[in-house]
């Protein structure tokens, strides 16, 4: 069964890059471009992992993270925060809100994919 990743970012070009990367790594992807969309996609798409930008119009990434963590059925969803804000306070805020990982932009493609693979417990084959 293919693992599903929800990409949430409002930067068109970054979304394009992430989609390309993750599809090449064998994940099924869906895109949301703001916080509201992200929440409805989580419900309908039921992703295994959410790649979450912090600075977005309407609900910030922090808020989305908080909502997902507050929902009992969504506890197993992994959350990776992606942000151009790299100060310690922001990292720890993300982690304290329940993110599994906080990745600072710009990132290395290989590292990001490796971390996502590790979180989702298996190689790109994902083949359980």
């Amino acid at each position: 069964m293919t693992k599903k990743v929800l990409i949430v970012d409002d930067e068109e070009n970054i979304v394009t890059a992430l989609e390309f990367l993750l599809q090449r790594s064998g994940y099924e992807t869906r895109v949301a471009r703001n916080g509201d969309e992200a929440l409805s996609e989580v419900a309908s798409f039921a992703p295994d992992l959410v790649l979450l930008d912090v600075m977005m119009p309407r609900r910030s990434g922090y808020e989305v993270c908080q909502r997902v963590r507050a929902h009992p059925e969504w506890q197993r969803i992994k959350i990776v925060m992606l942000s151009a804000k790299g100060r310690d306070v922001e990292v720890s805020k993300g982690v304290s809100l329940g993110a599994d990982l906080y990745v600072t932009k710009p990132f290395s493609n290989a590292e990001l994919v490796a971390k996502i693979d590790a979180l989702l417990g298996g190689g790109r084959a994902g083949g359980q």
């Binding site: 930067e11 970054i14 992430l18 804000k85 790299g86 932009k105 990132f107 290395s108």
Partner: peptide, 14 residues
């Protein structure tokens, strides 16, 4: 920094 990192992210990724 944030504003600089955003275009940098795309550039590096691609």
């Amino acid at each position: 920094t944030h504003e600089l990192r955003t275009p940098l992210t795309s550039i590096r990724a691609f």
